[in-house]
Nucleic acid binder design. Structure first.
Lengths: 205, 205
DNA sequence: TTTTATTTTGAACGTTGTTCATTTTATTTG
DNA sequence: CAAATAAAATGAACAACGTTCAAAATAAAA
């Protein structure tokens, strides 16, 4: 009976091997170099083997996208030490932006690329667990801000989504290269400046 | 001497024909159905002919992206009648969102897809005229708000970019299907609700 | 009419994601 | 241990993609 367990473990190991190769290709050369053939070649297996362990490319991209949320969580881990909810909210945005700009391809995969969502829809599982958890983390911080008397008269979910949209918009525009060629005084600093500007607005609440 | 002129006109006409077919395929079936072969087939020309009039696919997508900015400008045209800069700023955001959600594929092409920017870089023309014009339109409205005494102590460019990021973030998250599966009370209304929430924040400035 | 210039063609190339009959390897059974 | 069975790995093949380019078709000029 130890055989079935070993088989299962070996299956899991090869799955991980594929994923590690995919991740390496992905982080080093971007998504366009992350092809099934490149992955297979990197681990000395055939193309067909990859399809034994993953239904299709979307499944691989979804797995990578999940790893990305693990990375984001570790970025967020320092927030535990920030007691004041407003301060934590501010720090959360900074860290989110930092993560996005330090892991551009990964960020794109997590929040822009359609593949991970397509994969979820294809598996009839309309629950985006990783996104849900992250949004909940933001939302609970905002809830604490509301409880502390900030943002009087505002609703939790729309307010939280507004914060998310703001930092996501900055990352997205920067990553998709929309900040260049718009005649900004300092294109490379605009995201930081704009977020600082937003924090100034927040001082009134 | 009329020959050269007619030739030039015919060349322009075929170019437009290609572009119209591309646009039709694009708006009706999305970007994935807009292939060179589909375009060529739609106008009863061969694949090679398309490449006589456009360097590559990025060039076609860039031309479509430019048309998108024309559409956005016509959405914005009603803003001319709004005298108060703050009110115009608010309306601008609403219209921007409306445009984005009513023309999702086009919006993606204009503000997310890399192709149009790649095309610009390839032609050694680092000026994104369409984006520049649109950002300037926003920026000048924000400038008028500043002159009217709003947003005291804030800087023009970062503040403008912050507004842009906010509405872009909402459109982007919605279009890339990140608002579904996050356990929102009303996913379909979250963008409107969040923007309304933002307008409430603006009331203090 | 012949020569030259322009425009159009579509087969061909290299990639891509994906499939699946076949082979190889491992396990179980007699 | 050998034969039968199950599982895993293979890689050729398919369709579709963007792209190229020598050749053919057409138009203009001589």
């Amino acid at each position: 009976m130890g055989v079935a367990e070993r088989k299962a473990r070996e299956k899991e190991e090869l799955r991980d091997l594929i994923l590690r190769a995919a991740r390496k290709l992905f982080t080093e050369n971007g998504i366009e170099q992350t092809t099934i053939r490149n992955i297979a070649e990197a681990i000395d297996y055939s193309v067909g083997t990859v399809y034994v362990y993953f239904r299709n490319k979307d499944a691989i991209l979804h797995a990578l996208h999940s790893q990305g949320f693990g990375m984001l969580a570790s970025y967020f881990s320092v927030l535990a030490s920030v007691a004041d909810p407003m301060e934590r909210l501010r720090a959360m945005g900074r860290i989110y932006i930092k993560f996005g700009l330090e892991n551009r391809d990964m960020y794109e995969l997590m929040f822009s690329t359609k593949a991970p969502m397509t994969f979820l829809c294809a598996t009839d599982q309309p629950e985006w667990d990783e996104g849900k958890a992250t949004f909940t983390a933001l939302s609970s911080t905002v809830a604490q801000c509301l409880e502390a008397g900030h943002f009087a008269g505002h609703s939790l979910q729309p307010l939280s989504f507004m914060f998310w949209s703001l930092v996501h918009g900055m990352c997205s525009l920067e990553i998709s290269q929309r900040t260049q060629g718009v005649n900004l005084t300092d294109p490379s600093a605009i995201v930081d400046q704009a977020y600082t500007e937003f924090l100034k607005l927040l001082d009134h609440f």
